[in-house]
Simulated scan of single mutants.
Amino acid sequence: MTFKDVYILKDAVNDLEDGKIFYDQQELGVGDYFWDSVLADMESLMIHAGIHKKSNALHQMLAKRFPYVIYYEIKNDIVYVVAVLPMRRNPVWIIKKLEERS
């Protein structure tokens, strides 16, 4: 099934910016690579949305090159990216972030 659009919600954009800053602090330029690769992962949701497991009422897609999870939901053939969170954080922190956004 192909979806009409993929919308990245403001909180998810903020997550991307946080990740970019984190990776740029590790080495200059890696933040841009993080941004571009995670956006490419999100673009793939146009074709692959819905095949990923659900947890906390959201689908979870693993980013291909970084230890991040892309959380999304599907409504009326439109994909909404709700969060882009690091996998290495405390699970309680992740659940709290997701609950704040629902």
Rank of each mutant, 00 (worst) to 15 (best):
K97F: 02
L16S: 06
R88S: 12
D36F: 10
N90C: 10
D5G: 08
M1D: 12
N76E: 14
L58N: 04
F34D: 00
Q26R: 15
I8S: 06
A83H: 02
K64E: 15
V84I: 15
T2H: 10
D77I: 01
Y7H: 13
V6R: 04
K54T: 07
A49Y: 00
F66T: 05
Y72W: 10
Y80C: 00
Y80P: 00
R101Y: 09
H48R: 08
K97E: 08
V38C: 03
Q60Y: 01
A83T: 05
Y71Q: 10
A40G: 11
L16W: 03
N90T: 12
D24S: 08
Y23F: 15
K97S: 02
S55D: 12
H48M: 03
K97R: 09
K53I: 07
I74L: 05
T2M: 14
N56G: 09
K54D: 10
E27T: 14
N56A: 11
S55R: 00
E100I: 04
I51R: 08
F3I: 06
I74S: 05
V6I: 09
Q25S: 15
V92G: 09
V84M: 04
K20Y: 13
G19Q: 03
G19D: 12
E99M: 01
M1K: 09
L62R: 07
F66D: 04
P91N: 04
P67I: 09
K4M: 08
R65Q: 15
V82K: 04
